[in-house]
Design a protein around this nucleic acid. Structure first.
Length: 240
DNA sequence: CTACTCACGAGCCAAGCGGC
DNA sequence: GCCGCTTGGCTCGTGAGTAG
């Protein structure tokens, strides 16, 4: 069996997001195929079992209802397998799903840089397309209210000084309300429209939102390689 | 040009599990 | 037991690449 460029890219992507469910795999494969609609579930399953055979990815079925979780193996990445039983797993799977949908829209996906200081805030992901840079946060449960001011101050700085186009919060319905309300308080008025909070997930972390809400508000990218920010601004792990 | 192989995607079906 | 959901086995068709 031969490993194609797309196989490698998908394994790299899995390394960045750490783990993904089958829905996310379908979207990520679409992105690497250069199309905007997800590949069929069957195709994604075939791909996973092919790479399981050669030892590049592994998978586990947590419950029969939710399908299998896939990750890149130690052989592929040199990193130990993720622990699927942590409380953050649901959040990480949701981030992977958002990442996959951004890939399908032609974005590149990066991990954010590590926090430099206590005031620093690491977002869940950075999506880049041309000169567009979006900071992505996935919020399935609202944070403690007092944390928003500090985090938003940091977003404001990055909007003003780092060429960030938008800060996008993808939330549950409840979390979206909180995120938006706190943003009204703490984000400068001239920046406020560049932070969007969209109710895209249900309580179980499943994507139930309408895509057009996410993409319609997005500004059009200017394709100019010279303007694309490069690591180490975002971090060293890159997937295109 | 033809025949062959291979990867890939689609559709169908059976089987397993949890929830009701 | 039935329903809804998932996985995986099977077959078929298509397109790219290659050997003769």
């Amino acid at each position: 069996m031969q490993i194609t460029r797309r196989d490698e890219q998908l394994v790299e992507w899995l390394n960045v997001v750490r783990m993904a469910d089958m829905r996310s795999i379908r979207w990520a494969m679409a992105g690497l195929n250069g199309v905007t609609e997800p590949v069929s579930l069957r195709v994604a399953q075939k791909w996973v079992s092919r790479l399981v055979e050669v030892g590049l990815v592994d998978r586990e079925r947590l419950t029969y209802q939710e399908g299998q979780i896939v990750w890149a193996t130690h052989t592929a990445t040199g990193r130990v397998a993720p622990n699927l039983y942590r409380q953050t797993t649901r959040h990480e799977l949701a981030v992977a799903h958002v990442s996959a949908r951004y890939l399908a829209r032609g974005y590149e996906w990066f991990r954010d840089r590590r926090p430099q200081s206590l005031q620093d805030h690491q977002v869940d992901g950075v999506a880049v397309k041309g000169n567009l840079v979006e900071l992505i946060e996935v919020e399935l449960t609202p944070k403690a209210l007092k944390r928003y001011q500090q985090i938003y101050n940091h977003h404001g700085q990055r909007l003003a000084t780092e060429g960030v186009s938008r800060v996008v919060y993808l939330c549950t319905r409840d979390a979206a309300k909180t995120v938006a309300r706190e943003a009204d308080k703490f984000i400068f008025r001239d920046q406020r429209h560049r932070l969007v909070a969209l109710p895209m997930f249900d309580e179980k972390g499943r994507w139930v939102g309408n895509d057009t809400d996410l993409w319609e508000g997005a500004p059009e990218p200017v394709e100019s390689a010279a303007e694309i920010p490069t690591p180490p601004l975002w971090g060293s792990e890159v997937v295109s």
